[in-house]
Nucleic acid binder design. Structure first.
Lengths: 139, 139
DNA sequence: GTGCTTGCAAAGCTTTTGCAGACCA
DNA sequence: TGGTCTGCAAAAGCTTTGCAAGCAC
């Protein structure tokens, strides 16, 4: 069965979540963003924040920074840039392309951090799944 | 109070977990590795697998792939390489340095995948935490 | 009016932890 | 023998989901 694309609606909740996230220079968790949005919409629920962040990610308007086992962080800036995470407090900050001098020598990226390591992860659709998707859509 | 370094023991469980992980070319979750190790040690518990993977990561013998979706994945190969994750099935595969032609043009990384994006995450200790650590150790 | 979305609360999943007994060095 | 480690089970923490009412289009 072909998956129909769902018609999204720009609800007040969705708009405010996006607005607030874009105003932040930090990369809040869903919970943190919930606390912020709550000031403008006291009755909004955490579940709604999660649902909307998910929709916004799928639309490409928001970036989800996943870190397994812990809380995901969200980024309202989808332009090309990288991140640095503090292994102790979990805070995530931006790293801009001009700060990085190549993946083979990434130690010189932010002078104020003690760099321990880095990871480069590509995202895509594997050959098996590509086949499945084609099969699904040919029904 | 200064943290004393703990004396680690190479128990049968720890050894087998490391052995099995090193034999795999995949990057299993704790649960998956648990199922594998279980065949050799039927009474091992999932908690033990988690605890040992944590110890092995701290020793630098194992890599924890956190930014890899919901569950953490573990890698027994700690030599320099990158990863690619399928956004549909969650599978993680290796990407070797020679396949990557620079972070500004990462689309040419694996011909058999449809690349959607990539992320570069640095890990370190932020300035605030560095201060805290110094303060803690000066007691 | 249709059907996507919300608030609320409960459920689900992954990971962590407390404890008593077991085991490595 | 001492202190680390294990198995078991319960707890913790983050995220998802079911449902009836609400709202965007």
């Amino acid at each position: 069965m072909r998956e129909e694309s769902t018609k999204r609606r720009m609800t007040r909740q969705r708009r405010i979540i996006l607005e607030e996230l874009r105003m932040l220079r930090t990369h809040p968790t869903a919970e943190e963003l919930f606390q912020i949005v709550r000031k403008r919409m006291p009755r909004i629920s955490l579940g709604t924040v999660y649902r909307n962040l998910d929709v916004l990610c799928q639309s490409g308007l928001v970036l989800k920074l996943e870190s397994a086992g812990q809380q995901a962080h969200y980024d309202g800036d989808v332009s090309q840039h990288y991140h640095i995470r503090c292994r102790r407090c979990g805070k995530i900050e931006d790293v801009y392309p001009e700060e990085v001098n190549g993946i083979s020598d990434p130690t010189v990226c932010r002078r104020d951090y003690q760099i321990i390591g880095w990871s480069l992860i590509f995202e895509g659709i594997c050959p098996d799944c590509s086949e499945d998707i084609v099969a699904e859509n040919s029904n």
